[in-house]
Design a protein around this nucleic acid. Structure first.
Length: 471
DNA sequence: CTGGGGAAGGGGCCC
DNA sequence: TGGGCCCCTTCCCCA
């Protein structure tokens, strides 16, 4: 045990549950283990480059790649599935071909398998991720997601909400435990590096591969005796512990649930500097998103091949989830729910939307009171029988009866005089939390004002909680 | 606690 | 390819 004290942190113990006298012999020096794994992987890579002992031919769009089936088996769920069924005939080299990603992409994948280094760039990350998804390499997918996340700096979006609080519903709200995100870091965009290697990808990849090779025989037996794996990611593919699912890639429902119950103030004060920084971060985020969209591969997925569909239809597969669409444009639109890009800000409340139609719908409903329905009694109202009531930045219609009942008519009429038509000013709305009735301003306006608004085309009059109203 | 309604968001598809 | 429409689901608020 003296060795234990001397080596300290360099020692790792693998719990075996065996008696102490046996356990004592099972101390491993982590450096030696890592060195051995790294050395072994390097040797395998050398063999591959010299085409020594290669027993697997992979044809990608006509380009031939030679590799070792053991290595591929240990790295990819796809190859595990494929090679499991050719395991009886170990003498013959296994051949497979791909048309759904490019040779360059497969080179990146193969280099990662044999070196632990993932050569990612903003130009190839989407296709590498698609290929990794196809090949069922969850660790590569995770690294790609992390890469994309660092490129887009989605945290800027979250910070966006935290500091500007543009709206009460636009983003997942305050559900994260790590509320103390550094603002400066969150609003900065870190450019993708030319050769992106995950912090711990190399040793982990090495360990992962060696571990998988070690388990090959056992897994092979299991695979051969079990039903054919589905097209979904192979469950036995190990997901590395640090491969945390990025926030931006989670489905909306999950994000919403996580943030449920914590609402943001409607329009908090924000400093000019912060607003400018956020604005800049936003534009850079949009730019990065554009770059990603520009690098979308022509065909990133084929649906039907594995269902023995005689007429497999070409579809575009989302690299972040299992969703497929018929058109590239639809994929681009869909990707916004993963990237967090919201290019359409509301001029009135600054809430941002992924689609113009959603913005329009929001504006007409919330800020223009286009619905000819009384909010209180739900009855249909006309331009004559109903009036528009303003509550903060929000407008809706109420019938005359309900206005009298509520007593709204006692409040100042929203004449809109003096109210700024500059939507930009809304950024600096001096709105404290609007949750309580104490902050509400009930204003009544004639429909003429609406006509004025509708002509403004998504520009709305600001209704301030001014002192005048509170008096 | 629950159900209804409003708002937001996402998918399919047409133009 | 983008815009737009329709439909559906989900979430949140409120009675």
């Amino acid at each position: 045990m003296a060795m234990v004290t001397e080596m300290g942190a360099n020692l790792a113990y693998r719990a075996t549950g065996e008696p102490n006298h046996l356990q004592a012999q099972r101390w491993y020096h982590t450096d030696i283990t890592a060195d051995h794994q790294s050395y072994l992987l390097k040797q395998l890579d050398n063999q591959r480059r010299q085409e020594l002992f290669c027993d697997c031919n992979v044809l990608v769009e006509g380009q031939l790649f030679k590799a070792h089936r053991n290595v591929l088996f240990g790295s990819s769920g796809y190859f595990r599935m494929l090679l499991s069924h050719g395991a009886d005939d170990n003498a013959e080299p296994v051949s497979t071909s791909f048309e759904v990603f490019s040779p360059d992409t497969f080179t990146v994948i193969l280099d990662f398998i044999y070196s632990g280094q993932l050569d990612l760039s903003s130009h190839n990350v989407i296709e590498v991720m698609s290929a990794a998804s196809y090949l069922q390499m969850n660790n590569v997918i995770s690294y790609c997601k992390d890469f994309i996340k660092s490129s887009l700096e989605i945290s800027a979006k979250e910070d966006d909400v935290r500091y500007l609080s543009l709206s009460e519903n636009s983003y997942p709200q305050g559900g994260r435990e790590d509320n103390a995100i550094d603002h400066q870091a969150a609003t900065s965009i870190s450019p993708p590096s030319a050769l992106w290697t995950h912090d711990s990808s190399r040793p982990q990849s090495s360990r992962y591969l060696v571990k998988e090779l070690d388990l090959d025989a056992a897994v092979l037996k299991q695979d051969l005796s079990s039903p054919q794996p589905s097209q979904q990611h192979s469950p036995e593919v190990e997901v590395l512990p640090d491969a945390e699912e990025p926030q931006f890639a989670r489905p909306r429902a999950e994000r919403r649930r996580k943030g449920a119950g914590k609402r943001k103030p409607y329009c908090m004060r924000s400093s000019t500097d912060e607003a400018l920084a956020i604005q800049e971060a936003r534009s850079q985020t949009a730019q990065k998103a554009d770059e990603l969209y520009a690098t979308l591969p022509t065909i990133v997925g084929v649906v039907g091949l594995f269902n023995k569909d005689p007429n497999p239809s070409m579809r575009f597969k989302c690299p972040f989830c299992t969703h497929t669409v018929k058109r590239k444009a639809d994929l681009k639109r869909h990707l916004r729910c993963h990237t967090g890009e919201r290019p359409y800000p509301c001029q009135a409340c600054n809430k941002r939307f992924t689609r113009l139609e959603h913005l329009r719908s929001h504006f007409e409903t919330i800020h223009q009171a286009r619905k000819l329905v009384c909010r209180k009694c739900k009855r249909q109202v006309t331009e004559q029988s109903g009036r528009v009531v303003c509550e903060g930045l929000r407008r809706y219609r109420m019938c005359t009866e309900c206005i009298q009942e509520t007593g709204c008519e006692d409040l100042p009429i929203d004449g809109l005089e003096g109210a700024s038509e500059e939507p930009a000013l809304l950024l600096g709305v001096d709105g404290e939390e609007e949750d309580g009735d104490t902050q509400r301003s009930w204003l009544v306006t004639d429909d003429d004002d609406l006509a004025e608004d509708s002509g403004a085309d998504l520009i709305i009059q600001e209704v301030e909680d001014s002192d005048e109203e509170l008096q």
